[in-house]
Design a protein around this nucleic acid. Structure first.
Lengths: 331, 331
DNA sequence: CTGTTAGCGCTTTCAA
DNA sequence: TTGAAAGCGCTAACAG
């Protein structure tokens, strides 16, 4: 019993006018007489007409949809970012297509290509790739999040990775630590490199020689994380503090530290996570504010979509150390 | 410098054939001579032709897109579900549009209506509403998750809420508890009602009179949760165990229990969460397996999209108690 | 097996 | 201010 769709033609017919005039009314074109406008509006109401977004997009060459591309939808950080973007999009009647790259360049490319094919109106991208030349052709506005494109002038909403990492490590140093390890993953990614640089900055400023053994790259799997932590603690001079460069690393390494009963080691996580304050000791973090990042990125994108065209800008979301205990342990 | 889009016409021209034949080749229609096929395929490759999904959808009356509607994208449970759906969709070249209802019926309606307008090929919905009559008209396959539609014959992927809750409470009872509280939110929602029923089942079987004071509904805000917990513990006969009916409640109530240093109270959460095993004591949970739910729902939807048409079925994802400590505390 | 014609529902010329 | 006609890119009919 699915009644056939109401088309613009039906509205025009009912309002005794042409499709184009009806179209004008629907799109808020001013050059329509008040009288005709009223007739069309009534017909729209009576027939419960809603424009077909697909047909409209085809004609306009632009879909009322934005694409959001992240590492992994299930990642708590990105889930919050997406949640905020979707919230803002819905208010504007814009749909959100999501896609994840699984942190693989070729996937990023496929996914972005697909979105371009669909003619999304705009993109918010946590890019894993270094090469964005293929994005240039698409010519829809792009806002990068979390990581900036070095080869492309575009908006970006980031945190100050280097400064934040430095701040975090300085926090640990201020409690007397001289042996601070750096836990990271995917050091090839810009974000990770910047945080590592911030770690080095802090050590250098404090006149501490960086110990290569303290710089640990942990792999995606849980068991690798355990091995890496165990190796770290088995060193002749094990670190007295650990700086975890992201939430993933924290979630992977903390279970091992707890299992080994080495919660005496100071710990600071770049990126907050649920229940961090309930662990023993509660975990000191640098707060990221994924919602804020999502909101800033969406605002930027929507302002461009509504025609504004300021020069590309890099917005930095504020960061702050949230001391909870684990980062304030003495050596 | 955006070169104009390559159209099917261009391919047909290059292959010295008609658009329709080219279309046949692209859509894998068998009734094309090998020779022509080869020419078209070569032209496609040379011109780097990719079909316009919008035009195709318009003509076919169906978009290669599925809609996923959940309470809140940022909710860890739904984030994992969505992640898994997106993973499966991408393999099939299907896009995923997400939308959240914020647990409000009118939003659910607006959102589903919008997706129907877009002519999504299928829907996966965690419905908050009781009335799905408006879904019937859309006539695209729908798979419900987490909650079932009572007024509509459709596929659903659920957990056994009632049986699971009963199992959880029985677990607590088996350690000697007689005073078990039930923490829930939004008791109006079917899922919540079923879990509460399971809680009652377990008590009844054990010959325990349910105490209305033990059934607590905590509101979305954190401070309300704290008040509710404090009131619960201030009772003349406070409970010795708490059954938390969902992850949200657990995440909201555990901070208060820790703050009050009342981790001597047994605690069991319906729904796992990150770091649960690192708290002191580690939190016993009933594992939900959001990924599995996402996968089962997506499989079901895709099988329907590929033409299979079995009678609607309700699939129940398995549940299991994961004992970690908090649920095994004696009274 | 192939090509022509028409049309999905809408908006944009361009002329009245 | 209005409308007719063309066409966005594709595919379903229906001839050939």
């Amino acid at each position: 019993m699915t009644r056939p769709r109401v088309r613009l033609r039906d509205v025009a017919l009912a309002a005794h006018t042409s499709t184009k005039t009806a179209s004008r009314v629907i799109n808020g074109d001013h050059r329509v007489s008040a009288e005709t406008r009223a007739r069309v509006e009534q017909a729209v109401a009576e027939l419960d007409y809603r424009p077909d977004p697909l047909a409209r997009s085809l004609r306009r060459g632009l879909d009322e949809t934005i694409g959001v591309v992240v590492d992994e939808v299930g990642d708590p950080f990105f889930a919050s970012v997406i949640g905020e973007i979707e919230r803002m999009a819905l208010d504007r009647g814009v749909s959100v297509i999501i896609a994840s790259t699984r942190r693989r360049e070729e996937r990023e490319r496929i996914v972005l290509d697909g979105l371009a094919q669909r003619r999304v109106a705009g993109l918010i991208v946590a890019s894993i790739s270094e090469d964005h030349s293929y994005l240039r052709a698409s010519s829809c506005p792009v806002v990068f999040i979390d990581r900036k494109a070095e080869d492309l002038e575009a908006d970006a909403v980031l945190v100050d990775d280097r400064g934040g990492a430095r701040m975090g490590v300085e926090h640990l140093l201020s409690y007397g630590h001289r042996s601070v390890a750096h836990l990271g993953d995917r050091l090839g990614v810009a974000t990770a490199r910047h945080r590592l640089a911030g770690y080095r900055d802090a050590l250098e400023d404090a006149g501490i020689q960086a110990n290569p053994d303290y710089i640990v790259e942990i792999e995606p799997s849980q068991s690798d994380a355990a091995q890496a932590i165990e190796a770290l603690l088995a060193l002749d001079h094990p670190p007295t503090a650990i700086f975890s460069a992201n939430t993933r690393c924290s979630l992977r390494s903390l279970p091992t530290l707890h299992r080994l009963k080495r919660t005496d080691i100071a710990f600071l996580s770049f990126g907050d996570f649920a229940m961090a304050e309930l662990l023993m000791p509660p975990v000191t973090v640098i707060d990221h504010s994924p919602e804020l990042i999502g909101r800033l990125a969406a605002e930027r994108l929507f302002s461009r979509l509504s025609g504004e065209n300021p020069p590309p800008e890099t917005i930095r979301a504020p960061l702050q150390v949230v001391p909870r205990g684990s980062g304030e342990l003495a050596p």
